[in-house]
Amino acid sequence: MRALPVGEDALLVEVDSGEEAHALHAELLRRRAEGSLTVREIVPAARTVLLDGLADPVRWARELATAALPPAPPLARDVIDLPVRYDGPDLADVAAHWGVSAREVARIHAATDFRVAFCGFAPGFGYLTGLPSRYDVPRRATPRTAVPAGSVALAGPYTGVYPRASPGGWQLIGTTDAVLWDHARVPAALLTPGTRVRFVPVDAEGAA
């Protein structure tokens, strides 16, 4: 575990894997909840957790540099089921990358237990991990100028769902009607870091 200073009052804590970042994030949330860590933002990412607005960055840099990596947190019991129609325009391309049929892409994807590794890109956009690395896909060579809200998409090791229409370069494999972001809801994001997610196929009429 390495704690890199960022500006005057932030630390970027770096670990070796997404699993370790998940464990570290859970441990830092626990310490904030118990009151021993005073910080404005705890931002998990692929291999790091950012602590921004730290009350005592020098002390925490020392402490985290020598601390043992926390054990993996128990699996969250709650799972969010996202209804999905596997009807994306890039389904055939993804099938070609995986070397399987489009129907098989849907079956593999829907059988995967995902977790929100971190958020970014847009409010409520989660980077979901869970697919084995042999299913990594490149981004599209030319990003689309408009990806519809609810698009279920793949890029690199991640699955994501576009919370609102935006430009984007991910491979679109399906569509969900779930509301990913509603700022009148608490929390506004349906998918928050650490949340378990499953995609549940529905037919075109929306019935499960």
Binding site: V43, L50, D52, F121, P123, G124, P187, A188, A189
Partner: peptide
Amino acid sequence: RPGHAHLGV
């Protein structure tokens, strides 16, 4: 709106 960076805000 600080405090929501972990949600991509």
